[in-house]
Design a protein around this nucleic acid. Structure first.
Lengths: 196, 196
DNA sequence: TTTATTCTTCCTACTAGTTGGTAGTTTCGA
DNA sequence: TCGAAACTACCAACTAGTAGGAAGAATAAA
């Protein structure tokens, strides 16, 4: 019924890898075929067009993200700890070079030149992340787990920009540790001070 | 001696435009030829290869940046005002859609797949911006024009990440105003509080 | 149980169009 | 008359995508 590893999953995995390193126009079906070990034409059987392939990839990327967020919210009650976990997730990905960049950050840069179907899926991803972070900010502020200096949705956008900016800086400098260097003070700023 | 508009400048200008919208692999000599109004082969006369073209573009982009920074430092004495001017520069570019994204942000995302000669020129740009911002932070801190909560070079990287992250957010949301929304509180945070 | 049929997945072989780049020639102003 | 800048006309390699067939597994009919 459900295999551990299907060809279609392998194609998506290698696409994600290629996408992270060079963007939408930076890879071809030939590249995927080499990694997966099947012929170019066979990829078209699973994903008729390149747009289908990347659209599906981004859709699943968002769905997986939504699922992970659900688990995180259940396991971690404190809003600050949620933000720390989110930051640590990316810190780990960047540091061990497994997924050193966000697929949607890559595609967002290319947004104006992307096929519309892919573009809308990318904006959907950012809508989801933004509103999730805003909800975390709002809840954390109300419960005294976060100290905000601006409106929750502004703090959410700022935090998101810091994470994605730090991701770019780490890549531009070729130094993974830059990510944590930037995020540590950013999280400290959101930490409530103990009254004394 | 020096024309107001040379073909080579037109090629560079259209390349910048194309680069901002779709990255290194998102444009071709055919695209440039259409915009500039000369044949593909004629572009090769000015820039033998695509690598030459983009390398030269990024080199000039950094040089122009260095010149602008020089002028800014002369005209504006206050460190906070310099940071505000830098932020306003990008806010204006994004808002009037003239250059709604940084060429080097685009190329930094693609860094792992870029020809090495272009890649080194891109990292040079970020080295320059980082160290310039660090010097502004340090000077501003010493003269009481900026209130830092971390070491100057950390604040510099944080500010840079915020600017570039905000640029990406503006693009991802399709809302230019998001940039200023993020940068305003970021600058407030650096503003010294008047003692009373 | 055997046979026939369908479906899935992969294959070879191909296409039309694009890519960056070259060779050699013309045009034209200094 | 010389050099820069443009041109026409190529090229090999690569692009996404198609047509049609072979192998095998699952399903249905005998």
């Amino acid at each position: 019924m459900s295999n551990l590893s299907t060809t279609s999953d392998d194609i998506l995995a290698s696409t994600r890898h290629l996408l992270i390193s060079g963007g939408y126009n930076g890879f071809s079906y030939a590249d995927i075929s080499e990694i997966v070990g099947i012929r170019k034409a066979s990829i078209h059987h699973h994903f008729p067009s390149k747009v289908d392939l990347v659209r599906e990839l981004v859709k699943r990327y968002r769905e997986d993200g939504q699922a992970s967020v659900g688990v995180l919210e259940q396991k971690v009650p404190n809003a600050l700890d949620i933000l720390k976990a989110y930051a640590n997730h990316w810190a780990a990905c960047i540091e061990d070079a497994s997924r050193p960049y966000c697929v949607c950050a890559m595609l967002a840069s290319e947004l104006p030149s992307l096929p519309t179907e892919v573009a809308t899926e990318v904006t959907n991803f950012f809508r989801f992340i933004s509103s999730w972070l805003a909800s975390v900010m709002e809840r954390g502020s109300k419960q005294g787990e976060l100290s905000l200096t601006s409106a929750p949705h502004v703090e959410a956008e700022t935090f998101l920009a810091t994470v994605y900016g730090a991701m770019l800086s780490a890549r531009a400098n070729g130094k993974p540790e830059v990510f944590s260097m930037i995020l540590e003070p950013a999280l400290n700023r959101l930490t409530p001070t103990v009254s004394h």
